[in-house]
């Protein structure tokens, strides 16, 4: 029994060195060879640094709006709303988001709003919206910015991220990248 305990302790220490130590170092060393040095992918625009994988809060009428977030896009405390599908408070908040959207985009009919634009994501940091969610914001942005609707439609189709290998998974729009391109137009 005593031998078992000593062997267990020694083996655990060896494993600690191997898995918490050596394995971590191997992966860390590989990450240093990438362009981001393992710090996460970034893009720069007008002297600002953005993490390209992380969604940002866009509520301003000048920008394509991002999805609602349970944590207001706080990238130091990711979380979803964890509201159940039949929760009356949750349903009321979805209804309120629909009403707010219609108020800001009076030309859009309710039946055109896709569900991703009025529901919160799992991480609260979703960088994407669906293509439809971008298209129904064109009318508003065109008015605020004075850019033609046609030019915006072209921009969206250029910025549409296709399914993986053209076959697997959904089409989507990266909101931050789209808004950077939008700022570049002026």
């Amino acid at each position: 029994m005593k031998n078992n305990i000593i062997s267990s302790i020694r083996l655990t220490i060896v494993m600690l060195i191997l898995f918490s130590g050596a394995y971590t170092l191997i992966v860390w060393a590989s990450s240093q060879l990438t362009t981001s040095h393992g710090n996460g992918d970034v893009i720069y625009f007008k002297g600002k640094k953005f993490y390209s994988n992380l969604g940002q809060k866009f509520t301003n009428d000048r920008y394509f709006n991002s999805r609602p977030s349970a944590v207001e896009y706080n990238a130091a405390s990711s979380a979803g709303s964890n509201k159940g599908p039949s929760n009356p408070a949750y349903l009321a908040s979805v209804q309120a988001r629909i009403d707010t959207f219609i108020a800001h985009n009076p030309k859009i009919k309710k039946s055109e709003i896709p569900s991703d634009l009025v529901t919160a994501s799992g991480s609260g940091l979703d960088p994407h919206i669906s293509v439809t969610s971008a298209l129904i914001q064109i009318n508003r942005i065109s008015k605020v910015r004075g850019i033609s609707e046609n030019a915006l439609t072209t921009l969206i189709s250029k910025q549409t991220e296709k399914p993986m290998a053209g076959l697997f998974g959904p089409e989507r729009i990266h909101v931050l990248k789209l808004n950077i391109e939008l700022d570049k137009m002026q």
């Binding site: 979805v94 569900s115 009025v118 529901t119 919160a120 994501s121 979703d126 439809t132 998974g169 959904p170």
Partner: peptide
Amino acid sequence: GNPLIEKMGINQHGNMEGKEVRFG
């Protein structure tokens, strides 16, 4: 999707509460 949200009259493409657009 969620029938209670469908009743609100929007264009559902799945129950997206708590889900990420890049996975669907």
